[in-house]
Nucleic acid binder design. Structure first.
Lengths: 344, 344
DNA sequence: TTGTAAGCGTTATCAT
DNA sequence: ATGATAACGCTTACAA
């Protein structure tokens, strides 16, 4: 194997050209693997060898400038600390890398979405994936000339991917109903995120379809955290009329509730059935393990990236509306038949 | 407020120049806020207004090409799904953004470190943060001409930041010893990561200093996951000679062990004391809550980014060796005095 | 103080 | 098949 002089990126296509005894554009022709440009296999060999020997790596920045394509994507998520979003990021990053795109990661936190879009645009990203960001609240101008893909947030302006959030809620409700529960609570995130609203809607509708009502004191909105879920369950348990089961907008909430029950000596699932949503790894940590609705977070990220790349490159059909990714009820230990119905 | 024509990034400094009636370099001079270039405040005003009106955003790619600085950082972590690394990423991203740098996120997974470095270099990143990657196993050439900062992985070639891993192990040991435990196990990740080895070393040394030995059947190495911890604890409990307490290389392992004890009816902390390490959010989920050693993951990421930027920009002192970030023992519910010693 | 010119490292359009 | 030549949008001397 040839000895590399320096894999230093200061080596330019000029250097390679000099060493191979060809012109600089020829080097570009050889290495960019432009299909419509044939080059004599003899010179091709010489160029490749020279490049190899010099450890040449094309300067992507220069390429971006002239091609007006950066082969870079922006990825904006609310909170990387949340396992669910971490998985989305992981999936998106993998696909993007496979497709030859690099990804600029942004956490929303206190920076307004608009600013993120601005700075990403300044970096000439070819597109942006927005996960659960309040895209509708931002002036159109901010998106001008940007390829956008939304995750869990339908829009008729931009394409997107989503899980079957309504189906998730429905699956949870039907599971609980089938077990004989009729006094069922719902605990949802206070954040106004479309996916969460849909989970709630699917749940509420399925209850209604079964003739089961959801009184307001059993419908609680709290921050989507462990503490939020814990507080909500405490409140529920303090009610004169306790529910016998509850569905939660995500696993964090459900796990918080799980803890509240354990602390207060409320037996799970005998005295209280719990259903979460997402199926994060920690759902199996608690005892009994959490019954939940599995949502394919990584797959969501992966598809978003794939969709965006397709959009950028103009490949793929004419914006075929992708149907939501299916969710799957995972029955574990936190749900049991409603006590009174056992004889049935 | 003036009406923007289009905040489209196709607006170039030329357009601004035309509208302001100045030459293009003048626009550059005004907007790049180059200190050593004074421009008449009248023209400055005109330029700024024109830029504002056209919604001009400088093309960072073009700037990168000529400055030979991309104001972009690479950030390579083993696994974003791991809460700890997610926090590191979050901290690093925040600081980088504050300092005007964008970050390319890379998950190691199956892609070899060398490849990541290569593609990041092709993108002209100004530096790379490497978290718990096997940097020493990679040929020097891969790092040639790259600014590197290591996290939790000391090296005399590159600067880095680390937590006081040895102190973490020591703190855990001293806590357990103070409670009267003498039969103490250690469960560590099988992965050969420096930080983990140091946690182990601190732990083992503190035991030795107290005259307590760690027989080999109480020292277990398993994958750093919930399942790994669960399996390790099962094995420990199956031993003819059970330990009365155990320290774990990270919280995932400890939580897995927690679950194993619960499943097998081993009372925590009465029959088994557990100490984790990291203090991830889920440490408080279980009942009783996990005693652990808190490691400032976000701060680690933040400092790494700060250090890298300093290195890149040549500011800051001459590579002052930063001391490890302090860790803190958080005593919660999984540790109790050794039964026999209660009378003392 | 400001305009002119050169060049960053590529790709792309021509001639040859 | 390959080599000039001209961009891409910006920064940075150097003139004017």
């Amino acid at each position: 194997m040839a000895r590399h002089h320096r894999s230093n990126s200061r080596t330019t296509s000029r250097d390679v050209a000099a060493r191979a005894g060809v012109s600089q554009p020829t080097v570009s022709l050889v290495l960019s693997s432009n299909p419509k440009a044939r080059v004599a296999s003899a010179t091709r060999e010489r160029v490749l060898r020279a490049a190899e020997e010099l450890g040449y790596r094309p300067n992507v920045v220069a390429r971006s400038l002239v091609r007006r394509r950066s082969y870079a994507l922006g990825l904006i998520v609310p909170d990387i600390g949340n396992q669910f979003f971490a998985d989305v990021v992981s999936g998106a990053e993998r696909v993007a890398t496979e497709e030859g795109y690099a990804v600029f990661l942004r956490e929303q936190r206190d920076v307004p979405l608009e600013r993120h879009l601005e700075t990403l645009r300044a970096r000439q990203v070819d597109g942006v994936i927005l996960d659960a960001a309040g895209a509708s609240a931002v002036p159109q101008a901010a998106f001008e000339g940007l390829n956008i893909v939304l995750i869990d947030q339908p829009s008729d302006r931009w394409p997107g991917v989503a899980s079957d959030a309504e189906g998730a809620g429905r699956a949870a409700a039907e599971h609980l109903l089938a077990l004989g529960h009729r006094r069922i609570a719902f605990v949802g995130p206070s954040a106004d995120v479309h996916g969460f609203r849909m989970r709630e809607r699917g749940f509420v509708r399925a209850l209604a379809a079964a003739g089961v009502s959801l009184p307001s004191q059993w419908l609680r909105r709290v921050p989507a955290t462990l503490d939020g879920g814990q507080g909500a369950m405490r409140a529920l348990l303090a009610l004169p009329q306790r529910p016998s089961a509850a569905f939660f907008g995500n696993d964090l909430l459900a796990l918080g509730a799980h803890k509240a029950c354990t602390q207060l000596g409320v037996a799970i699932p005998e005295a209280m059935s719990l259903v979460g949503c997402d199926d994060i790894a920690f759902a199996r940590l608690v005892t009994p393990e959490l019954t939940t609705v599995a949502v394919p977070a990584r797959e969501l990220g992966a598809r978003a990236a794939r969709l965006l790349v397709r959009e950028i490159e103009g490949t793929g059909g004419p914006a075929q509306k992708p149907r939501p990714l299916p969710v799957r009820l995972v029955v574990r230990g936190t749900t049991a038949p409603y006590p009174q119905e056992r004889s049935a």
